[in-house]
């Protein structure tokens, strides 16, 4: 697994591009386009959580959708009950993070092997799918919020200016919130990875035995990474629910769990920009295919994934990056020597 050079120049460039998109998009694209991009961003936040725990923490969670969906449902249920969206947003991060911490505690301190972490997380999201799917009827209400079973929860109140439930966010405001959240999450994860904690996390991915023999308790590090990943996925779910004012159990489903893996694989495992671009690209592709009738969308997606796994197994970003590295002089490309200094 190769990690792309992560010098501060590349990082600043990404943040700059994020801000250009944040403020530029509403100026150049129609309202419909902005709304569409908002859901791409929700998926990108989701992909970041997967890319962080898998590509850097080496944790094979195949059911990250559990935390994504949980974030969405927690937001929906709490905002219906509370009215003001401020605390529901925080809960949509905190509850999935706490659930990830609980699940992670049993997995990592129980010495579950990597493959079984994948099986367990996948099982958890399927269990959540089935549980929420069977909550139709009046019996399954939390406060004033009816879970609605397989029909989902429609008319979820939108975000509002903190403290003013009547000042609801319009589509453009929601865009600023979503894209701003994506940039913040990126900066947060970059910061974590640049810290010494982050170096140990990557070291665990490379060789857990060595890390333990050096005196680090790898289980604690993995638990923290998994918890952060759960919180980030929850935030993505919150944005997703806001985008359509709707959430349904399919968010926990196999398709949702698999989709985020595809985002990460296509974009590039072991990078942070990769999963974001993977989410944007695949979601865009889906929206294009959706407007025509010739080809089945799932067929095309499957073909794209197979093509990537066979031809570009590293994913887009690492390949493009090394291509740039070969074309440009060394000081721009950030070679190993420089990275080591930058990170030391």
């Amino acid at each position: 697994m190769s990690s792309v050079p992560s010098g501060w120049r590349g990082c600043l460039l990404v943040i700059l591009a994020g801000f250009v998109l944040l403020f530029g998009l509403p100026q150049v694209v129609s309202l419909y386009g902005v709304v569409q991009m908002t859901v791409f961003v929700a998926m990108a936040v989701f992909a970041l959580s997967q890319g962080f725990i898998w590509g850097f923490g080496g944790i094979m969670s195949f059911g990250q959708s559990a935390f994504f969906g949980l974030g969405g449902y927690v937001y929906a249920v709490s905002v219906i009950n509370m009215g003001d969206s401020t605390i529901p947003v925080l809960l949509a991060i905190a509850v999935p993070a706490a659930f990830a911490a609980l699940l992670g505690y049993f997995m990592f301190f129980g010495r579950i092997s990597d493959a079984y972490v994948g099986v367990i997380t996948l099982t958890v999201t399927i269990i959540l799918f089935n549980v929420v799917n069977s909550t139709s009827g009046d019996f399954y209400t939390i406060g004033q919020a009816a879970l609605g079973g397989f029909n989902g929860m429609p008319n979820v109140p939108p975000l509002n200016v903190p403290g003013y439930p009547d000042a609801a966010f319009g589509p453009i405001d929601t865009w600023y919130f979503a894209m701003g959240a994506l940039i913040l999450v990126y900066i947060l994860l970059r910061g974590i990875l640049a810290s010494r904690f982050g170096r140990v996390v990557v070291a665990i991915r490379e060789n857990e035995t060595r890390v333990q023999l050096l005196g680090y308790d790898a289980r604690v590090y993995k638990l923290l990474v998994f918890t952060i990943g759960g919180g980030v996925a929850g935030l993505g779910g919150c944005i997703f629910t806001n985008w359509g004012a709707f959430i349904s159990p399919t968010i926990f489903g196999l398709a949702s769990a698999a989709q985020v893996l595809i985002f990460v694989l296509v974009g590039g495992l072991g990078t942070l920009v990769g999963p974001v671009l993977g989410a944007f690209g695949i979601e865009y592709l889906i929206s294009i295919i959706g407007t025509q009738q010739t080809l089945n969308a799932n067929l095309v997606l499957g073909a794209v994934l197979v093509a990537f796994v066979l031809l570009v197994p590293q994913g887009l970003v690492p390949v493009v990056w090394s291509g740039i590295g070969r074309l440009l002089p060394r000081r721009f490309a950030g070679t190993g020597e420089q990275t080591a200094e930058a990170q030391s």
């Binding site: 697994m1 170096r199 140990v200 060789n207 050096l214 200094e341 030391s344």
Partner: peptide
């Protein structure tokens, strides 16, 4: 050898020294 293959020589030693 139990080393961090994907990290540089410097980072390998730095992780060990930094606890």
């Amino acid at each position: 050898p139990n080393v961090f293959n994907g990290l540089s020589v410097y980072e390998n030693v730095f992780v060990a020294a930094g606890r």
